[in-house]
């Protein structure tokens, strides 16, 4: 079984591209979700092994979702285009990848927290 990863990104093209890259890297992609309610709907169906979360989703932060995922045993990786977006202290051990994303860096970071089999 391939390990699953949730992709949460509101920009449709970017989300498609992330999904394609992760899928190429051997992950089973959940989503991609364009909003937090859509992401919550997805994880209610199936809890992924890892999650790649855009921090800022049309003005809403993904930190609460990240906490929920981690509480349920899911590794989390943040994407951010903002230097301003500071990660809260309780999530500061989560890896952060800056946008625009270097696909190699993303897959390497993600592999560090949960390599797909």
């Amino acid at each position: 079984m391939r390990k699953s990863v949730l992709v949460l990104e509101d920009e449709a093209i970017v989300a498609m591209d992330l999904a394609a890259e992760l899928s190429d890297a051997g992950w089973q992609v959940l989503g991609p979700a364009g909003s937090i309610p859509e992401a919550i709907r997805l994880i209610e169906i199936e809890l992924p092994d890892a999650a790649v979360l855009d921090v800022n989703l049309s003005g809403t932060k993904s930190f609460d979702l990240a906490k929920t995922l981690r509480d349920r045993g899911c590794s989390v990786l943040f994407l951010t285009g903002y230097a301003k977006d500071t990660i809260p202290a309780h999530l500061s051990d989560a890896p952060v990848v800056a946008k625009p994303v270097d696909p190699a860096a993303l897959t390497r970071q993600l592999a560090a927290i949960g390599r797909p089999e």
Binding site: E11, D17, A20, E21, P103
Partner: peptide, 24 residues
């Protein structure tokens, strides 16, 4: 200014993705 910055980053991310997807 801050918005613009955000958007530029996002635009770049989008363009990167468009490039990546178009190539695919």
């Amino acid at each position: 200014t801050s918005e613009l910055n955000h958007r530029v980053k996002n635009s770049l991310a989008t363009i990167q993705s468009i490039a990546s997807q178009t190539i695919r």
